[in-house]
């Protein structure tokens, strides 16, 4: 019997987020041949998305476009996504493990009484069973999990499952009239976009990270310059956050974000176990530290023993030369 898998899309600045292509791929990996792939898109305005959506490889796109949905509001988004769920009756629902997905997925799971596997980094089919891999203890260990009931909900960690290439077919697009809940108990008063124009830390291919060795908020400037040249994002250790050199939203580690970029450049970070948990699965790790005994060198692919304020600007300059 064919099943339906529903991906809840995310978009930003009028374009689909990379994690949505990864979620589509995740849906393909969790389905068998005859399964139907549906995509729910919620927000406002959505006009600019229809083209990229129609070729995303889904059978059906469910659009709910309403001014009330311009900002993420948990109750409003749950109501909207439930309209799609009621209409499409999915067996599986996949979201990104992002600010929205982390918030919305458990609401959906409780609402439809589903099991949920969060923060999935790999999906495989073993003996006809779909098996989900996820980190525990912030990546100090990994577990494989399966569902014992249906429907099910999964959130996927950005940057781990390769994105589907948008080539497939022409999806049928269905517009829903947003059925606004009678009373919302949640009101979004204001949204301050600190991140607009910047590369998202959890999706970044390159992360330049600063620790207490950066010494001040100004000390992050050379790191930002390097990140800009590389098209990457800036992260931080808790040492730097605690010292108020930067915002906690940049913190990487066991009590911060876990990142898995292609290249992680740790500047003035000692390499405490809690920090390492959040970045050790990066593909290539570079450490710049003036202390040759710093534990970060034990996990770095390349290390430079030196003063970050000398090394980082030189790196920026050198990359500028070779990248043009």
């Amino acid at each position: 019997m064919s099943k339906t898998i529903l991906v809840v899309a995310e978009h930003r600045g009028g374009a689909l987020r990379q994690v949505t292509y990864e979620a589509i791929q995740a849906a393909t990996l969790s389905s068998t041949e005859n399964d139907q792939l549906h995509v729910a898109v919620i927000g406002h305005p959505l006009d600019s998305l229809t083209e990229s959506l129609s070729s995303i490889g889904a059978e059906k796109i469910h659009l709910i476009d309403h001014p009330d949905l311009q900002q993420y509001n948990p109750e409003a988004y749950l109501a909207a996504v439930m309209q799609v769920i009621d209409a499409s009756n999915p067996d599986g629902i996949i979201l990104g493990h992002t600010a929205i997905g982390r918030d919305l997925a458990p609401m959906i799971s409780a609402k439809i009484d589903a099991g949920q596997i969060s923060d999935v980094t790999n999906i495989e089919n073993i003996d006809d069973q779909v098996v989900f891999t996820r980190p525990i203890y912030a990546g100090k260990a990994f577990e494989k999990k399966v569902f014992q009931s249906s429907p099910w909900v999964v959130t996927i960690r950005p940057n781990n499952i390769p994105g589907a290439d948008s080539s497939g077919g022409k999806a049928e697009i269905e517009h829903f009239e947003y059925a606004k809940p009678a009373s919302l108990r949640t009101v979004i008063k204001d949204v301050v976009r600190n991140t607009s124009g910047k590369v998202d830390l959890s999706e970044a291919k390159i992360v330049v990270s600063g620790g207490r060795g950066v010494k001040s908020a100004d000390g992050f400037k050379p790191l930002q310059e390097l990140a800009d040249v590389l098209g990457g994002a800036v992260g931080a250790s808790r040492g730097a956050c605690d010292a108020d050199y930067c915002d906690y939203s940049l913190q990487i580690g066991q009590t911060g974000k876990v990142v898995t970029p292609e290249v992680y450049i740790a500047c003035g970070i000692s390499g405490a176990i809690q920090h390492v948990a959040g970045m050790s699965q990066s593909k290539v790790i570079v450490a710049i530290n003036k202390d040759p005994e710093a534990p970060i060198f034990n996990i770095a692919d390349y290390g430079i023993v030196g003063d970050l304020f000398e090394v980082v600007p030189l790196l920026t300059e050198e990359f500028q030369k070779v990248l043009g």
Partner: peptide, 23 residues
């Protein structure tokens, strides 16, 4: 509604190389 089927440690990251010479 979910069950764990396996548990493992991530591959141990090996220390790489410390670069030498002028900065």
């Amino acid at each position: 509604k979910t069950a764990r089927t396996a548990l493992s440690l991530p591959p141990q990251k090996e220390a790489g190389q410390i670069l030498k010479g002028e900065t």
